[in-house]
Design a protein around this nucleic acid. Structure first.
Lengths: 206, 206, 206, 206
DNA sequence: TATGAATGAGTTTTCATTCAT
DNA sequence: AATGAATGAAAACTCATTCAT
């Protein structure tokens, strides 16, 4: 939760531990409200109330309402991507087909954690975009998956390798998203992982 | 001095042709604003202004602001799915591998048309949901693709056929969505269609 | 229901029987809504809907919303006072103590019929006042009771006869109103009538 | 973009003295407007303007327009009844006939103070009722007069004592109301008090 | 630092009334 | 005569934001 410093200069940096706690409370309150009731209920006054601080204090740390959402989003992306990045770093040498299921499993798990919050965030709110450089989970994931693929390009049989990478990324992220948005009882997580791995590997290597 | 609260019914249904035109104007205005400027700019007064009618007229046909968006969404889903449905009906007998590219091309084309509007709609706004029975494009597409797959089940080599169908649907819809949300200059539409067809066919038949 | 001609000149006089029926429907609808739901729900459009005519038709006969209420009020006053007036005319010669219970009974009965509507009418709405010459049931009743008292002034033992009349009127009207506004299960209508007659007679003759 | 809907609680309670003053200003402004111009002129924005605060401040302390009127009504009832209650407590032992004029005088005086405001309040507005537990001045006065009568039941000659009490209450309250609603130049306040006392005492003791 | 009272532009919504058909 | 689509001023109410304490 140290994410805010860079994006907005006007915001006060919480140097004292007490302040850090306050910022945390505010972000947690915002997350709670958005997840449980929806973005439209996340008014600054209500966030302050749930966080147990005054509205003045909220504005001490966040210059604009959008900054709260931006910070939330940033944390979200970083937190949900960090484990994936770690796994990829540790698996760069493993054969492609071996780590694909685990990779997908990891992405799914982390997406799932934040799916509810993410679903309720405004998809394309102009103002937030200005705040957070449009740092979506996708952007983040794409780059990491990209790196991984680059390390395994010799296993790939598709002609245009770069294109193959993008398609593979789309396959993974797209299917996981679709699975999270419209879950089917016909398809457990593990089954989905198995089939998706199979599809990606077939696509790349056959 | 509120009164009446005719919450249940959808307010007046336009009987005269003049009224029909008015309703269309309002919906078009709403779509234009949301697409071009974002959902947050779609205030009822602004919609009325762009539609060239008075605010009172808007409320003659839509009992709540959310009802406008709900109507928009409904039209969107129906319109963008109808061509796909037609193609599927006309292609039930064609071999699976032959019509897959065209099918994906069609879905992409129709999704694209509405992608901009859809992107800007609140992803999970509670109030709209109550209005529109949560009729997402996915729900609609899934069912039609589903029917198509049922007619081609003998071509499919995956063990569990039903599961294969769901995964294929996820593959198509997921990748198309991902492609539309984060377009890469590395991948033209046609390249995406080609690769995705290839991936789905490999997944299903190898 | 012929009450409307005098008060407002701009209003069209319903000469044809069909028109008379229409006016009746509108007035009945207004009365129904005000009685059952409250004055705040009596919007012109809703009245038209309940009356089964178009809003345009309403404005054919009533130039202003207030004119509807004024007509209602006028009818109310006239209708609820007419029986009392008739009884008084027929009883001018009867001894005072004999007809007092019947008089009160009559007033109560007629007030009761209209109590619900009257309760819900705005007590002191400036606009209606301008329309209807502030013709309240009270005004009407006072004058008729007054006439009756004048015919019985020899029975009265109170020094200042005119004053006694006013107080008696207040006693009757006030208690009946109070009884209607806050009815007590401890006091049936007949008991109230009996006690009130007794009180008035004692006041006047002892 | 509504949100929150904190319908239950009465919104913020004024903790700082500054806030107390603000609430008072709002209530006084509302009273002034309703008394001087009528209920229909008491719009929230106008109340705010007259109170010298912003509309936002009004809604900080009153969740709904009706809540303002309800608060007004509550104050009205309490304030106008307190002196009567005090007098009754101090006069429980005095003989009945002695304190009756003073009692009526007191009730009249306090009703008069609030008569103008009360006259202009909607008589039976559903929404206000929901807000204020239908605490009318009548309810309040009845209960106190009731207590007083219970302490004097041995003076009363009417058979059914409880019934006599109700009728007496009706006589007092009804006549005072009637006197306030349709004042006659023929009858001064003091004359009315004298005659009403006389009537009540005759009714009870003869 | 923290508070919370105050702001007011801006939003949704209502409803009496008009007028072309 | 009757219709009902259209009007728009005006009402209720919200909420991000400021600032004196």
């Amino acid at each position: 939760m140290k994410a805010l410093e860079q994006t907005t200069s006007k915001r006060k940096a919480p140097t004292q531990p007490r302040a850090r706690v306050t910022v945390d409370c505010i972000l947690q309150a915002a997350e709670l409200i958005i997840s449980k009731k929806g973005y439209e209920y996340a008014t600054t006054n209500y966030i302050a109330q749930v966080a147990g601080v005054s509205i003045g204090t909220v504005y001490q740390y966040f210059p604009r309402k959008e900054a709260i959402v931006a910070a939330l989003l940033e944390n979200l992306v970083v937190n949900s991507t960090e484990p994936v990045r770690k796994y990829l770093l540790a698996s760069m040498h493993k054969p492609f087909s071996e780590c694909m299921p685990e990779l997908i499993r990891l992405v799914l798990k982390n997406r799932k954690k934040s799916a509810f919050l993410f679903r309720r965030l405004p998809r394309d709110a102009t103002k937030i975009g200005e705040e957070s450089e449009q740092l979506t989970p996708e952007t983040f994931l794409y780059s990491t998956i990209h790196a991984f693929f680059t390390h395994h390009r010799d296993e790939i049989k598709v002609d245009d390798i770069e294109m193959a990478m993008y398609v593979s990324e789309y396959l993974c992220v797209g299917v996981i998203n679709a699975h999270l948005e419209d879950p089917t009882p016909k398809l457990t997580d593990e089954q989905m992982i198995e089939h998706l791995s199979s599809a990606v590997i077939k696509y790349l290597t056959k």
